[in-house]
């Protein structure tokens, strides 16, 4: 902008001036085009479709207004899937972030061979959802899986992990935490690296306890990174699909039928695209509200340097 202004000042009498706004738009054009094609168009199309009854090809047929929404909000199945989603988020996000934070604090110590553990802790980042899910499918296998072997070794009852409606959601949440930890760990470790070592040394000279410096130095200075990780994990968790599809297919008894999976089923199994679109719009609104609330709530607690 400064360069543009300077040029305008230097040539006040040039015959034709390229409007500054237009010039700016030109620079933004590549991303505007990409966003328009892959984000804005699908978004508005989804909102549009959510107001119609559609045929099997997904073409809008009859305008029904907000009928899909009112049906959804009164449908017990949608409420169950909303509940499953919220529970799933509550299972995965806090546990995942706390686990990653703990590992990052450990891996931030100056110890011999710590590089090996750093690699190990972040390794799940490099695995696809499909591959990890298949691994966990084996782990949960009632006959040959290691999960039940561990249970019997500990003298506990064998469990029908993915087949019992009471445990299925948690059994999907555990692999999800495992998968997300690598990424969260890496980002948090980076955040810890950015904290100036002399702050801790200053604390040491004052003689404050390790817990005090964790609470008064580490967490406040890590708060921007934590906010980022919590936001990303929340959104990811709301949009979980792959592991549900592979591990439980929304079952048993719809106990793991989270919203994204329900959208998928309505759209591509039942070909009820209008209702699926309405669910997608509701999920979008829901994530938007949660994220706004989260930012509002954390405004005073996050310290940007």
């Amino acid at each position: 902008m400064i360069a543009v202004k300077d040029r305008l000042r230097a040539e006040p009498k040039s015959r034709w001036r390229f409007p500054v706004t237009l010039e700016g738009m030109l620079y933004l054009l590549p991303s505007i085009v990409l966003f328009a094609v892959f984000l804005f168009y699908p978004m508005f199309k989804t909102i549009y479709l959510s107001l119609f009854l559609t045929d099997a090809q997904g073409n809008a047929q009859i305008f029904v207004g907000l009928e899909h929404y009112s049906q959804l909000l009164s449908s017990p199945s949608f409420r169950a899937s909303l509940k499953a989603t919220v529970l799933f988020v509550l299972y995965t996000v806090p546990a995942g972030v706390i686990l990653a934070l703990g590992l990052a604090l450990l891996a931030n110590q100056k110890l011999k061979g710590i590089g090996f553990f750093r690699t190990l802790f972040s390794s799940t980042m490099g695995m696809s959802v499909a591959a990890s899910s298949v691994i966990w499918l084996f782990i949960y296998n009632p006959a040959i899986g290691i999960a039940n072997t561990i249970m019997t070794t500990l003298g506990l009852q064998e469990m029908q992990w993915l087949l019992n409606p009471d445990t299925a959601l948690i059994s999907v949440a555990i692999p999800t935490i495992w998968m997300n930890t690598g990424f969260s760990f890496l980002i948090l470790l980076g955040g810890l690296h950015n904290i100036d070592a002399s702050l801790y040394e200053s604390g040491k000279i004052a003689g404050v306890s390790d817990f005090y410096s964790l609470r008064k130095i580490t967490l406040p200075l890590l708060s921007p990174t934590l906010l980022f990780i919590v936001t990303v994990s929340l959104i990811n968790s709301f949009q979980t699909f792959g592991q549900i599809d592979i591990l439980t297919k929304g079952g048993p008894m719809e106990s793991t039928n989270v919203i994204v999976y329900s959208i998928f089923k309505d759209a591509f199994v039942n070909f009820n695209i209008g209702s699926a679109s309405a669910q997608a719009v509701l999920l979008f609104a829901f994530i938007l509200i949660v994220t706004i609330l989260q930012f509002k709530w954390s405004e005073k607690k996050v310290h940007y340097q």
């Binding site: 100036d196 002399s198 702050l199 040394e201 200053s202 040491k204 000279i205 008064k216």
Partner: peptide, 16 residues
């Protein structure tokens, strides 16, 4: 360090 009865001023000040 805290038993040595010292204070220290760092090059980058180490302010929180």
């Amino acid at each position: 360090p805290n038993e040595r009865q010292i204070s220290m001023v760092f090059q980058n000040y180490a302010l929180f």
